[in-house]
Design a protein around this nucleic acid. Structure first.
Length: 281
DNA sequence: TACCAGGAGAGCG
DNA sequence: CGCTCTCATGGT
């Protein structure tokens, strides 16, 4: 089977795919085309249905359901958010916004090269890396070429200069260092899944180019740690404006506040705040 | 032309 | 610690 359908409830596909968590999706008319788990995928949401199309027959769609978080119930997550005015505004502005569950290596690599870059630039870097170091994937007739995201081993073997040619700039050294540390077995992304969130975060931060923000992005967007709360400048601004309009708490203070105040799904709440402040201007 | 985006890491008091 | 500067690149 190359097509599948699901009922869709409380799911804004466009907002989810463009909310700065994944960087491989491009709009194609009413649909979205991208690469998930080494497969070319076309997604279209119409009314209360989601349809997916892939280029080669598959017998099991669990990989895509997992990526999209389809089994997850959004209302029960939103119910854990604090009941305050800023959160209420964010929820009503971003109805159906979801968290994806991405492959850890691709997510980590994407966020290592994300620092000081806008979403379009990150998309461009990821596309260049995939084109040059990934494998060409089968696509339906007439579609532009698509490539898998390069493996750690492949990027570990690349020179820093080759990575710089993908417009990574000073992040090329970080990505090469992280790819090599993982390829050598010095650190295993698989083992992180079994660790408590703070320990997993410490492990990630041993990698070059990975600080608290990027570690939290990976925990949230790839490992499903919905308590991880990435604070970038947008969220920093939002927290200060919405919750501390008079004082000016520093990053550390806000980080601690966020992790307790927003509850067990703090990271999910963060995504709502992030998307809310980014789209309202 | 000069300046800005916006995360990690190094350097400094 | 906590602040400040630098890093590469494309856009204004």
């Amino acid at each position: 089977m190359t097509r599948a359908r699901w009922p869709l409830e409380d799911y804004d596909l466009a907002a989810t795919l463009t909310s700065g968590q994944a960087f491989r999706w491009s709009r194609s008319g009413p649909a979205w085309e991208g690469v998930v788990a080494g497969r070319w995928v076309r997604l279209e949401a119409s009314g209360d249905q989601l349809s997916a199309e892939v280029s080669e027959p598959v017998s099991d769609w669990a990989w895509l359901e997992h990526y999209l978080g389809l089994p997850e119930s959004l209302p029960s997550i939103l119910a854990t958010f604090p009941k305050d005015a800023p959160m209420a505004a964010a929820i009503s502005a971003c109805h159906g916004l979801r968290l994806l569950r991405q492959e850890p290596w691709e997510c980590l690599a994407s966020f290592i090269l994300s620092s000081t870059k806008q979403i379009v630039q990150i998309q461009q870097c990821v596309a260049l890396l995939s084109e040059r170091f990934g494998d060409r994937l089968p696509v339906p007739m007439g579609k532009p070429a698509a490539y898998s995201f390069p493996t750690r081993a492949r990027l570990a073997a690349a020179t820093e200069l080759e990575l710089r040619a993908c417009k990574l700039g000073f992040r090329a050294r970080y990505l090469a260092g992280a790819a090599r540390a993982l390829a050598s077995g010095e650190l295993s992304l698989d083992r992180l899944g079994n660790l408590p969130t703070p320990d997993a975060r410490d492990q990630l931060m041993k990698l070059p180019g990975v600080g608290p923000k990027i570690a939290n992005c990976v925990l949230l967007f790839a490992y499903g740690r919905q308590d991880a709360f990435p604070v970038d400048v947008w969220v920093l601004r939002a927290l200060r404006e919405l919750y501390f309009p008079r004082r000016r708490p520093n990053l550390r203070t806000l980080q601690r506040f966020a992790e307790t105040y927003f509850g067990p799904n703090a990271g999910y709440a963060q995504q709502y705040l992030f998307h809310y402040v980014r789209t309202k201007r």
